[in-house]
Amino acid sequence: MGDQAVQAGGAQGALAQDFVRFAVQAGVLRFGEFKTKAGRMSPYFFNAGLFDDGAKLGRLAQFYAQALLASGIAFDMVFGPAYKGIPLAATVAVELARLGHNVPFAYNRKEAKDHGEGGTLVGAPLAGRVLIIDDVMSAGTAARESIALIRAAGATPHAMAIALDRQEKATENGRDVDHSAVQYVRGTLGMQVCAIARLADLLQYLSASEGGQQMSEHHARVLAYRQRYGVED
C-alpha cells in the first residue's frame, strides 16, 4: 500500500460500535468472570477463536480491512503469527485484495520443517514494511517474537492490527506497569497499532444498549475494571 497520512490508533465511531455489536452477537465477546493471563478477574472476555465459521470470519476480515484503510497506515505485506494470527492475516489479505489493495501474505510455524521448503516461514518472502495481524495484545510477548522474526528476515516490522485494545495496564515480572501492551508497542518498539475497537468503545456500546438491567450491570462491572486497571490514552 502506498504512503498515506498516518493516523495511529483504533478506528472510531460507527465502525467500532458495529464491531462490538457483531462480537457480542457472535458470542465472541462475553461477560461474566474470566481470569486473564495477568491473573486478574475480568468481567469480559474476547475470544477470536469463536469466529468459527466462514460468515463470521469473512465479516471479521471486513472490519480489519476497513479499520486499516481508515487508519492511513502504509504497509507492503501482512504477516500472521502462529496460530491465531494465521487465519486472521489470510482472510484480511483476501479482503484487502477485494477492495483493490492486493499485498503479499506470510505466516510462521511454531516448529521448523526439516523437509520440503523447510524453515518456519510460509508464504511470500518477508520484505518491506510488514503489518502484523493478531487478535489482542496482552503483554506484547507475541509482538516481540514476530518483530524478531521479521527483522531476522531483513524486513521492517512496521505496524500491528488487532481486533480489540483492552486499554489496561500490562504486567512485567508479575507487577502492574503504567502502560498497556499497545502503548508499549507504540512507544518502546516504535510501531503503529490499528485496533478495530477499544475498551472505551465497549463501554460506549454497553451504556447505549437497550439490553436493560443486564447490560447496565455489565457496564458497571466493566467500568469498575477499567477504573482499577485502565491506562490513560
Rank of each mutant, 00 (worst) to 15 (best):
F31Y: 10
F31K: 06
F31Q: 03
G32E: 10
G32M: 09
E33F: 00
E33I: 04
F34D: 04
F34P: 03
T36C: 03
T36K: 00
K37G: 00
K37A: 14
A38M: 05
A38C: 00
R40E: 00
R40N: 02
M41L: 12
M41N: 05
P43R: 10
P43A: 05
Y44C: 05
F45S: 04
A48V: 11
A48T: 11
L50S: 02
F51Y: 14
F51P: 00
F51S: 02
G54S: 11
A55M: 06
A55I: 13
K56W: 01
K56N: 01
L57E: 01
F63N: 03
F63Q: 04
A65Y: 03
A65G: 05
A65Q: 06
L68W: 08
L69F: 03
L69P: 01
S71V: 10
S71W: 06
G72Q: 05
I73M: 08
M77A: 12
V78N: 05
G80Q: 09
P81C: 08
P81F: 05
A82V: 14
Y83P: 04
Y83S: 13
Y83A: 11
I86P: 01
I86G: 02
I86Y: 02
L88G: 01
L88D: 03
A90V: 15
T91W: 11
V92D: 00
A93E: 06
A93C: 13
V94H: 02
A97Y: 06
A97F: 02
R98M: 10
R98L: 11
L99I: 10
G100E: 12
G100Q: 12
G100L: 14
H101C: 14
N102K: 15
V103I: 15
V103K: 01
P104Q: 13
P104L: 12
P104H: 12
F105K: 07
N108C: 05
K110I: 11
E111C: 11
K113V: 13
K113T: 13
G116Q: 08
E117D: 14
G119D: 12
G119H: 08
T120M: 13
T120K: 14
L121Y: 01
V122N: 02
G123Y: 07
P125E: 14
L126P: 04
L126A: 09
